[in-house]
Amino acid sequence: MTTRDTTVAVFRPDDERLTNAVELIESLGATPVPDPMLSVRSSGSGPQTGADYTILTSKTGAELACEAGWEPGETTVCAIGPSTAQALRDQGYEVDRVPDEYTSSGLVSELSGDVAGATVEVARSDHGSDVLIHGLWEAGAFVHETVLYELVRPEGAGESVELAAAGELDAAAFTSSLTVENFLATADEKGIREEALAGLNDAVVGVIGPPTRETAESLGIAVDVVPQHADFEELACAVVEEAAPTYHD
């Protein structure tokens, strides 16, 4: 199989992230199947002010915090990874802490030695991992969480599900546990869960990190690729390479 014959499903929200994902897959010589499995619905809230530490976990959160008029003040601003950090800087914020591992557990490891007795504001989506909240509490922090936005499954999703069920999907790149769950929920609605799951397991499945892998495997999906870093470009490159070994030719 050549890369150009390789179909790769991507599930990013239908904004510049999906556009960039499509361009990246095309630049790798594969054929993208853009199938948004997440849509962002803002809560209108911004991070609570006055905390010793404030954590943001996504580019969307950074943008919505700015839209809500958030002013950090003296808080220590923490980003879950470099993409979120850059998004915060793009909005005019300074970033003080970024963990070496771009996950909730990585953030806990980064901050656990410093937050005992401190107040920590966690501003993120309604589907944030409990690992972050519980880990910070266990480290002795007083944690408050603000939901900046909800993640919902958009209407019209499902092209990749139908391709998988027909045996015509070569690879898939899941960027969160919720994209995995929404893929299968869409298959359920279409009455083709068993066929879609079989087709997915015949394809190359890549996931953004260990939590997404755990979700996928718990739902019967065999995972082939997990990049070293929770980074979409790294994920996409690894998935295309695995699906079409001619990638480097």
Rank of each mutant, 00 (worst) to 15 (best):
R4M: 10
T6L: 09
F11Q: 05
F11G: 03
R12C: 02
D14N: 15
E16W: 11
E16F: 14
L24M: 15
G29P: 00
A30L: 00
T31S: 15
T31C: 07
P32E: 01
P36C: 00
P36I: 01
R41I: 13
S42K: 12
S42P: 14
S45E: 15
Q48V: 14
T49N: 10
A51P: 00
T54F: 02
T57R: 02
S58D: 02
K59N: 10
K59Q: 14
G61D: 02
A65D: 03
C66L: 13
C66I: 08
G73R: 06
C78W: 01
A79Q: 00
I80N: 01
P82E: 04
Q91I: 01
G92D: 08
E94P: 00
E94R: 06
D96P: 02
V98E: 10
D100T: 13
E101H: 07
Y102R: 03
S104V: 11
S109K: 15
G113C: 07
G113P: 06
E121K: 03
V122F: 14
D126P: 08
D126L: 09
V131D: 13
V131H: 05
L132P: 00
L136C: 09
L136I: 03
W137A: 12
G140A: 09
A141D: 07
T146H: 09
V147M: 11
L148T: 03
L148S: 03
L151M: 12
G156I: 06
A157R: 01
A157L: 06
E159K: 11
S160H: 02
S160I: 02
A165L: 11
A165R: 07
A165I: 13
E168T: 04
L169M: 03
F174G: 02
S177C: 02
E181Y: 03
F183Q: 01
L184W: 04
A185T: 11
T186K: 06
T186E: 07
A187T: 09
I192K: 01
R193G: 04
E194V: 06
E195D: 15
A196D: 06
A196I: 07
A196E: 08
N201L: 09
D202M: 07
A203K: 07
G209V: 06
P211E: 12
P211W: 10
E214R: 13
E214L: 14
S218E: 13
G220K: 14
A222K: 15
V223L: 09
V223P: 07
D224C: 11
V226H: 07
V226Q: 04
P227R: 08
H229Q: 12
A230E: 11
A230W: 02
F232Q: 12
E234K: 09
E234L: 12
V239D: 04
E241P: 00
E241H: 09
A243L: 05
A244Q: 00
Y247M: 11
H248W: 09
